[in-house]
């Protein structure tokens, strides 16, 4: 039985390590993500951001360390097990099939079948139900499109990214992880995607935003996780720490204890037998 007090953390990790031969990608990294927040993860190239995200999404199994979801210890074996725990990821390369329409993309891999014999025996898709749900979902997120039957190839880069984010928000029950979602976008489209991300958070999901763009981070992040040399240097609030100080900690010009920490957890939750 899980007797520990409920934690406000959607996700937590402690002491993650991962080595590739002599290369130490993660060196005792910690991580925490509060419920309903946008946590930006920033760090220089090679700081180990990607390795951290791969562990959190089940793409990599760490050599040591522990991951908790809603206070319960988890051991992701592959991306599917992370997905089943309610963690969805939007990868840097646009993860949409351009020849499929918006509804097909939202339901790809999780298609709905018609009730009764037509679904069970003849495996027939319930296209109208998927279209309806997809349209409702896009509307709830404030994504404006002409038609849910539009092929994704007819959309702009920002709209395609919006479809990918909407898909993750639709299936992620707890956490949506976004890897450089605005990297390929112009100013206006970037703003549209950033607004969409805040709406995803306002629907109650926790969001991890990996980004190189400091203006993006300071525009929407609630807290900023600064990664350096394979571990978390510090977590700061954009309200109390300036952009230049964040960059300084990232590059090592400023020691991590020179900025005000916004850590929530002081201790990892007790290990519990679940998952």
């Amino acid at each position: 039985m899980n007797t520990q007090p409920t934690t406000p953390l959607a996700m937590q990790a402690t002491g993650l390590t991962k080595r590739y031969g002599h290369v130490v990608a993660l060196d005792g990294a910690d991580f925490e993500l509060a419920k309903g927040e946008i946590l930006a993860v920033v760090g220089d190239n090679g700081a180990g951001k990607s390795s951290l995200i791969k562990v959190l999404t089940g793409a990599t199994i760490p050599d040591s360390g522990t991951v908790f979801v809603d206070g319960a210890e988890v051991h992701f074996k592959n991306p599917l097990s992370a997905r089943l725990a309610g963690i969805e990821t939007v990868y840097q390369e646009l993860a949409v099939a351009t020849q499929l329409n918006i509804a097909q993309n939202l339901f790809l891999g999780r298609e709905l079948r018609k009730p009764g014999l037509r679904g069970q025996i003849f495996r027939q898709l319930d296209k109208s139900r998927m279209r309806q749900q997809a349209a409702d979902h896009m509307k709830n997120l404030g994504i404006r499109i002409q038609s849910i039957n539009q092929k994704v190839e007819t959309l702009s880069g920002g709209q395609r990214q919006a479809v990918a984010v909407a898909r993750a928000a639709a299936w992620g029950k707890r956490v949506v992880i976004l890897d450089e979602p605005t990297a390929a976008l112009g100013v206006r489209e970037t703003n549209q995607v950033l607004n969409l991300i805040t709406r995803v958070r306002d629907q109650g999901l926790s969001v991890v935003l990996i980004s190189h763009s400091m203006p993006d981070v300071f525009q929407i992040a609630d807290r900023i996780h600064i990664h350096r040399l394979g571990r978390r240097a510090v977590v700061v609030s954009p309200k109390t720490t300036s952009m230049s100080d964040v960059v300084a900690v990232m590059t090592g010009a400023l020691p991590a204890d020179a900025v005000q920490s916004s850590l929530i957890a002081t201790q990892p939750p007790l290990p519990s037998a679940s998952h």
């Binding site: 991306p79 949409v96 099939a97 020849q99 499929l100 891999g109």
Partner: peptide, 14 residues
């Protein structure tokens, strides 16, 4: 169709 269109996207979508 999704695989023919983009195997990477299909894989990422499970």
């Amino acid at each position: 169709y999704a695989i023919g269109n983009s195997p990477a996207a299909a894989r990422l979508n499970g």
